[in-house]
C-alpha cells in the first residue's frame, strides 16, 4: 500500500538554507545538501528545495546547488521558486531535479503547466497554490506571499491545474502558514476528495499531531513542513511513529 509522505521543505537563498515565519525574519539554518542528507537519514520521503533568491546570481547558484543535491541525496526531491518557463524547468531537470514546483508563473500563464507536463510528464510538475480565505469564507489564490488576491477561486484553479497536466497539487493556506496552529482540515478534506491527483498539505504545522491530522482527517497524500523540523520541535521519525500508531501506512 502506498505510504503517506512526510516532506521537509528547505528554503534556499543564495545557496544557503533559511526559514522565516511568513517569509520574513529569515534565519540561516545551514547547508542545503547536509541538511537534506540529515532529513533523508531521519526518514524523509522526499525533499522540497525552494529558491527564494532575489538575484540572478542567486538563481545561478541554485542550479549548481541542485546538481550537488542530486549527487548527494538518494531520495526524490522537488525544486521550486522562480520557475517561469519550460527552459527553467529543463535546466533544473538537467541539473537532476525529480520534480519542479511552479506557482505564480502558472497563475500568470496556465499554459506553462501543460508545456512542462507534455515535455517531461505530469509526474515532473507540481503546481503550488498559495490560497487565502476571504472574509466571505471563499478561498482564493494569492500571490506575493499571500499579500495580493487574484481573481482565481481555489477549487476551480486546482481542477484547472489538474486538467492541464499537474501531477500533484501543493496547497498552502496563507491564513495558517507560519502560525503553527495546524492545517485547515476541512479545506484539505474537500480538495483531496475532489481531485484525482495527490495533494500535499503545507503551511501551519506546529507539532506532530498536526501532520497526523491532515494526513488522516484531511485526506492529504503528503504533508510538507519546515520550521518544526528545522527548529527541532519534532522529528520525522516521531511523526511517522504517531502515524503508524493511528494505523496509517508509512515508510519506517
Amino acid at each position: 500500500m502506498l505510504t503517506k509522505r512526510i516532506i521537509p521543505c528547505l528554503d534556499v537563498k543564495e545557496g544557503r538554507t533559511v526559514k522565516g515565519i511568513h517569509f520574513e525574519n529569515l534565519t540561516d539554518v545551514g547547508d542545503p545538501v547536509t541538511l537534506g542528507q540529515h532529513y533523508a537519514r531521519e526518514g524523509a520521503d522526499e525533499l522540497v528545495y525552494l529558491d527564494i533568491s532575489a538575484t540572478q546570481q542567486g538563481r545561478n547558484t541554485f542550479t549548481q546547488l541542485v546538481e550537488r543535491i542530486a549527487d548527494g541525496i538518494h531520495i526524490p526531491f522537488t525544486v521550486g521558486g522562480g520557475i517561469s518557463s519550460l527552459a527553467d524547468a529543463s535546466r533544473l531537470l538537467d541539473a537532476g531535479a525529480d520534480k519542479v514546483s511552479i506557482n505564480s508563473a502558472a497563475v500568470a500563464r496556465p499554459e506553462l503547466i501543460g508545456e512542462i507536463a507534455q515535455r517531461y510528464g505530469s509526474q515532473f510538475v507540481v503546481v503550488a497554490i498559495d490560497a487565502k480565505q476571504r472574509p466571505d469564507g471563499e478561498w482564493f489564490i494569492t500571490t506575493h506571499g499571500g499579500t495580493r488576491f487574484t481573481e482565481r477561486e481555489l477549487f476551480a484553479w486546482a481542477h484547472e491545474a489538474q486538467e492541464r497536466g499537474a501531477g500533484e497539487i501543493l496547497l498552502t493556506s496563507m491564513n495558517h502558514d507560519g502560525t503553527r496552529l495546524g492545517y485547515p482540515i476541512p479545506l484539505f478534506a474537500r480538495l483531496t476528495a475532489e481531485l484525482r491527483i495527490p495533494v500535499i498539505a503545507s503551511g501551519g504545522a506546529g507539532c506532530a499531531a498536526h501532520l497526523v491530522e491532515v494526513l488522516t482527517a484531511g485526506g492529504a497524500d503528503a504533508a510538507l513542513a519546515a520550521s518544526i523540523f528545522h527548529y527541532g520541535e519534532t522529528t520525522i521519525a516521531a511523526v511517522k511513529r504517531a502515524l503508524a500508531a493511528q494505523g496509517v501506512s508509512v515508510r519506517i
Binding site: L2, T3, R5, G167, A193, R196, I197, P198, R251
Partner: peptide, 15 residues
Amino acid sequence: PDSPEAKVPHMGWNS
C-alpha cells in the same frame, strides 16, 4: 484504473 483510493499516477513509496 482511476480510483479515489488508488490515485494515478502511482507516486510515492510502496512496499
